[in-house]
Computed example of a mutant assay.
Amino acid sequence: MPAPKDVLAELADILAAVQGCEPETVQLETKLTELGVDSITMVEIGEELGRRFNIYLSDDAIDGFTTVKSAVNAVVHHDGSVARSSAPPVPAKLAPPTRPVPAAEPAPVRSYEPAREGHHVDGEKARVAGRFATWMVIIGAGLGVLLGLGSAAVIGATGLGAANLPPLSVTTTEAPTTTAPTTPAPEETEGEPTQEPTIRVSSTRVSPGERFRLEGAFPELGAGATLQVQVKDPGSDWDDFPVDTKTKGGGTYATEIYTSRTGKREFRLFHEESSKSSPSIAVEIG
């Protein structure tokens, strides 16, 4: 295993390249967050440190980077972790190819010639039906003429005519029109902006090692306030997560974190000077 002083020298070189730190500021008891290292940069530093010493630093090991000494110890006392392969398993037996089912042959079309017997009988029936219909029309027309003449004679004998019939009087009443009462629309009032801290998460379910985003606002703090990310596991108290962030205009904040510990974990942002914290939000890891 490498000597602690060699690891410290390499870590100081990495921090100088990534964060622009002076080598004399990289001391064993120095917190990495004091050097401006956030969760994303922490991963890059851990990966580069592992490459320089030809070892693999697991997500749990990088999660434990809080001070310079903890990062040095992760290399000196390496736990023997190796990177897992993500290649998909090869099936033991390939499925046999399926043979195409032949299409069913269409049934042969047969043509039938109509029987010629009975043609003469059908024609005779049609002629008889036609003559019967003609006679019915003639008889109906004659009855209509007779009935019309008889009705005219009756009207003439009684003295009733079209001129003597009294006119029909039709009274029309207009339906009353009603107008529905109009209800004035309620006036919109603008609510006062809330001053309580808020928090949002980009995803409530992530894979181990997958980054997710925490964002929100501490309106009363304004810009430049330091917020500490805290985590709580089932059955335990709130604990500082190795990431903090600073507020911007209006007290807004945003940071990205990741963790390889599986299970349902709660996160929040805490402001130490005012003892105020944001609401907690649960994220399922795994």
Rank of each mutant, 00 (worst) to 15 (best):
T226L: 14
T255D: 05
S207A: 15
A61G: 14
G191N: 10
S58H: 01
E48G: 06
P96I: 00
E210P: 09
E187F: 00
C21V: 15
A223H: 07
T252H: 09
V283N: 06
I199Q: 04
H271V: 01
T189H: 04
M42A: 15
T134A: 08
R211F: 12
L221G: 07
W238I: 04
T259D: 08
T30F: 05
S278Q: 09
L8W: 00
E188I: 10
D38G: 13
E24G: 08
D79Q: 13
P208T: 11
G191S: 13
G161K: 05
L35M: 13
I45D: 07
V121S: 02
I14C: 01
P197D: 01
D240M: 03
F241S: 10
V90L: 15
A175P: 08
T158K: 08
S81T: 08
S151K: 07
T173C: 04
H77K: 13
A12E: 00
I257S: 06
K69L: 05
L221Y: 01
L146N: 08
L8V: 01
H77N: 11
A107V: 03
T189A: 03
A103G: 15
V90F: 14
L15S: 09
A87W: 03
A16Y: 02
G36D: 10
N54R: 08
S86E: 09
T198V: 01
D233W: 05
Q228D: 12
I285L: 02
